[in-house]
Amino acid sequence: MSVLAPETVSLVDPGLYATGDPHPVWRWMRDNDPVRRYDATEYPAFWSLTRYDDIRTVFQDARVFSSARGILLRPHAHGKDPGGGRTLALTDPPRHKALRTLVADWFTTRSVRSLEDAMRGAVRRVVSRAATLGECDFVTDVAARLPLYVICRLMGVPDHEQEMLFSLTSKAFGAGEPETRSVAHQEIMAYFVELMYRRMDEPEDDLVSALVNGEVDGQLLSEEDILLNCDNLLVGGTENVRLAVSGGMKTFLDRPAEWERLRADRALMPTAVEEVLRWTSSATHIMRTVTEPVMLRDRPLEAGDRVVMWTPSANRDERHFENPDTFDITRRPNRHLALGAGTHFCLGAMMTRTEMRILFTELLDSEYRIEQTAPAVPLRSIVVNGLESLPVRISAR
């Protein structure tokens, strides 16, 4: 089968990810033009990276490849990212380390383990609720609920307010009309304004209190910085798990023998989780900005150049993964880049893996079977890779 060269395909066209297949294009680029220059369109000009080694090199060099000017391609019309240089994801050392230190205690091994029983209870309630619906959307009714419950708990959102926040995040980060998403996002920010002021008056043992009362370089964070970081933690704490679990479930539904293999041998769960992360690769792209002239392979990059890393391509690079287009729950080694690398390696990596392990384990242990009832709908996005919806029926076995 012939593969179209990138001249005929736009990697910044959301339609490619909703109705097409970018993997043949990325494969061609890995083989023929792994560091490729794209001229400005409605997006700024950028260098495109598709090989594992190059992407890992950029991830690990925060001095030359900066996050502070944004980590996603933005259309010219959208202007600069308001979080640039201010949030955990959009800062460089040493400020990044200082911000990370403020919140790191909630993502340690001890903290994650202390939440495991609560996570199991939450999953059981979520699955039982979904089963009563008959047909449901696995993405919103199952996969999205556990990570939101966990991050809400860490941020100090009271139990009785979590369903409201779930409804708002479903609208804000879903596939509805832009105006609806914008209004929902404004309501989320308004909620965190209120929660921020509550924690200023009465601090508690939670992430919002840590941001409100913590200091960076001897100074309290501004109110705007607190809100931007709350938003960053909410998105970062939910998106990876939602996309990985729903994409993983779709993969298992397409390959029922692998699901039954995992049911029969739970010792495979750790490698299965890693393979789901590699296979789904929820971040379609991550961007960095060059701070000084540097050579990448044989290409000269100048200060100010944008570098776009296609992480799903890195995780299918034949130079690092044997049979990369095969889903293999026994794959070892599996040093994927789905959770990043270097300074910005995902703060919640252990939490993400634990949530996935518990959710898949509870589904396998439950009295329910899961059947897909209609075609899955991929997201129309150049930012995140995954499903908008996965219609299923959850019923007693």
Score class of each variant (00 low, 15 high):
T8D: 13
V12S: 02
T19Y: 13
W28R: 04
D39F: 12
A40K: 09
A40Q: 09
A45G: 11
L49R: 14
L49N: 13
R51S: 10
R51N: 13
K80P: 14
K97W: 11
R100T: 07
T101G: 13
A104F: 09
W106M: 05
T109L: 12
R120K: 10
A122K: 12
V127N: 04
A130F: 11
L133I: 00
L133F: 07
D137A: 00
D137F: 02
R145E: 14
L154K: 05
L165P: 09
S167Y: 07
E177C: 00
T180C: 01
F192A: 07
S209K: 11
V212R: 04
N213S: 15
L220P: 05
L221S: 07
E223N: 14
N229W: 05
R242N: 02
V245F: 15
S246H: 14
K250F: 12
D254N: 06
P256N: 01
P256S: 01
W259A: 10
R266E: 07
L268C: 12
P270I: 03
H285Y: 01
V294I: 10
P300G: 01
A303V: 10
H320I: 07
F321L: 08
F321T: 03
T326K: 11
L337H: 01
T343C: 11
M351E: 14
M351A: 15
M356I: 14
D365V: 05
T373Q: 01
A374N: 03
N385V: 05
E388P: 08
S389D: 09
P391S: 09
V392K: 00
I394D: 01
